[in-house]
Amino acid sequence: MTKPHPVVDPGTAPYWAALKEKRLILKSCRACGQAHFYPREICPHCYSDDLDWIEAKGTGEIYSYTVAVRPAGQAFEADAPYTIAIVTLDEGPRMMTRIVAADADAVEIGKKVTVRFVEEDDLVLPFFALGGA
């Protein structure tokens, strides 16, 4: 069973297109200098609309995680148990991700992680693996 694919819209298309090229991009505000995730139309920090895309370094640390023992529906049954994390990127924003299966047993809050682009069902997702860049 195919996993749920994002229904890409004009506001998110650049993000998903960059992932296909193994790049993680963020919206950043020219007015206040802060990046945010996921991409918005107005800066959620200072409410300016003067936004730009920047390329993230792809590094951060684990803010929290859970191990999904019971999967989110049939599409994820083969993966269970799997580790979902919220990562604080070095640029500031937090994003949801999954930690690669090989690192599952060593996951802890506060550990450094680096993006690992994983291709599945014609979709590239920014997983993370333990360890700095």
Partner: peptide
Amino acid sequence: ATLTMQFETPWGLP
């Protein structure tokens, strides 16, 4: 996985 859920649903968060 529409709109804001593009960034949550594909990860399989129960």
